[in-house]
Nucleic acid binder design. Structure first.
Lengths: 250, 250
DNA sequence: CACAAACAAGAGCACTGCTCTTGCTTTGGA
DNA sequence: TCCAAAGCAAGAGCAGTGCTCTTGTTTGTG
């Protein structure tokens, strides 16, 4: 029954002036998430406390359980929001450079991801660090989590001309898997490209991880320049030519 | 106390004939870390409880504070151990293939890292996931953390012949930083190679992260083959030629 | 209007990290 | 050899946590 009402609330939230009660519920829910995000940014996910959130909001801790059935559910909600926020940031960056070359688009999206992560390290840790509640994220998060990946695939798809991309013939053991992945993700791209794309996707977040989590601390100083260069190499690696920078050789 | 006393009684391992007291201390310290590692593997870092460790060891929680001044200190100790364990695994894998081609050495080390991580996901999360105690790891962990990176650098150094490696001229903005990094890490390698090496290092852990933390869940199925291929590409990217697999072009 | 659902509040449980005090045991130097 | 100092285990206790259950109150709707 709760689910039904919740669904009604979410479906009609924007247009119809629902009962004051439903409106209050979404407002309180948002307030809880905002305060939780504040504590998250201040102290990290480990020290996020339901009681502290409730205290800060002037309510009693047990009242909060009417909005989120457990601390982990609150965290899951924050995770989805974080994925969406990152996806929006990436898409906004893409929109700004949609006229430029594919390689520039790629690098712009990568840099947007990096900047989002550096601005909200704790939210980033929530989604690309170790899974907090112990188990992996529930399937609710999947669509939100896929946004950045799909955006990168889209860039390559739009730029793809079927020449000069697949530097590597796939080893035999990987060929069926590559066909499967390509079918699922981008049927219009050759499997070689999809494989390299998935790798680049993971490697991009490897770079961001190391920077956000401090692994570059006494190693790389000018991390902006380093990341720009690495993202450009990734672009090249997935088959996008990067004009007028560096000077590619061959 | 049973467990502790038994352990004290059984093995007197080290060479130094310390006083019985000092020996007991190191034994108890090891027992605590072992039990903590067990709980870590079972439940994850978030649910590692000093009281539970003490309980399992038959001692009282306050007694444990004589060995580790806080929970975070225990975690730090586990972090250092994990770095060392990973480093040892990587070096062991390297030793086994030290006669083969550099690219094979590279891939072998990468696969050792991956296998270590998949076997101990929670310990891996401790060192390459989000930093748990809130702040980043203290500088005590630095030498242990560097082992895998230094091993990879060593492979490239040993294999380096100064031709055919630097595909990319560095952009001007990165050149001073690249010189600095090369000076610190591998003065005998050209800056272009060092830059690409650091990037490959981070990207390797990006691949492992995505697999261990479940980001590949509905995306990549045959992750072993995928990782092998991606590691081979990284080897190629840092300038190591990968013989008789895939079929390199050029 | 009346009723059932939604809600706030409080008490309470079992747990956590951590501190302080109380005694006992081991150790190293006089 | 003896004795103070240091190391140690144990217990009580504090403040905090996630979560549950019960008790009343508010509110939208049949």
């Amino acid at each position: 029954m709760c689910a039904v009402l919740c669904l009604c609330g979410t479906l009609l939230r924007m247009s119809t002036p629902q009962g004051a009660r439903a409106r209050a519920r979404t407002e309180v829910t948002a307030a809880i998430k905002d305060e939780a995000r504040r504590q998250l940014a201040a102290e990290g996910a480990a020290k996020l406390s339901l009681r502290a959130v409730a205290r800060e909001l002037g309510m009693v801790s047990s009242a909060l359980y009417r909005y989120f059935p457990s601390r982990d559910e609150l965290l899951t909600a924050l995770i989805i929001d974080a994925y969406d926020s990152l996806g929006e940031a990436a898409e906004a960056a893409y929109a700004k450079v949609s006229g430029e070359s594919p390689a520039r688009q790629w690098v712009a999206v990568c840099e947007a991801v990096r900047e989002w992560a550096l601005a909200r390290p704790h939210e980033y840790a929530l989604i690309y660090g170790s899974p907090v509640p112990g188990y992996s994220a529930p399937s609710t998060t999947v669509p939100a989590a896929a946004r950045v990946g799909l955006l990168l695939i889209g860039i390559v798809r739009d730029a793809y001309q079927d020449k000069g991309v697949a530097q590597w013939k796939l080893p035999a053991e990987l060929r069926p898997e590559a066909r499967r992945m390509a079918e699922d993700l981008a049927p219009d791209l050759p499997p070689e490209v999809v494989v390299v794309l998935i790798g680049a996707w993971a490697q991009l977040f490897g770079l961001v991880n190391f920077e956000v989590f401090g692994q570059f601390n006494r190693v790389v100083e000018d991390r902006g320049a380093f990341f720009r260069h690495a993202a450009g190499q990734l672009a090249h690696h997935v088959g996008l030519v990067y004009p007028r920078s560096g000077a590619k050789e061959r």
